[in-house]
């Protein structure tokens, strides 16, 4: 179990838990980031903050401080699906 803010670029996992009381997490839930969802840390911005994460076929940016409450299970076997390759 790792906070999303500590993931390395390229690392992925499944969302284990978030804090639904927080505005950021509510926004992410509306975008479909719910517990059990596979996600991948794509990159960090050049200055190290914010982060770009991929889940459910979309890329979303959020700040490092806002990513602390998102707990990711990196041991789960859930590569982000990269379908539709020729």
């Amino acid at each position: 179990m790792t906070p999303l803010s500590q993931l390395l670029p390229g690392q992925f996992g499944k969302l284990a838990s978030l804090n639904p009381e927080r505005g950021v997490d509510q926004r992410l839930m509306a975008l479909g980031l719910l517990p059990g969802m596979a996600l991948k840390l794509i990159r960090k911005a050049p200055l190290g903050d914010p982060l770009a994460i991929e889940f459910g076929g979309q890329v979303v940016s959020l700040r490092l401080a806002e990513a602390e409450n998102l707990i990711v299970d990196v041991s789960a076997d859930c590569p982000i699906q990269r379908p539709r390759q020729p």
């Binding site: 950021v24 926004r27 975008l31 770009a52 959020l62 700040r63 806002e66």
Partner: peptide, 10 residues
């Protein structure tokens, strides 16, 4: 005003 979290779709 309450600030909005900076959640931004790329």
């Amino acid at each position: 005003v309450k600030p909005q979290p900076f959640v931004l779709e790329l």
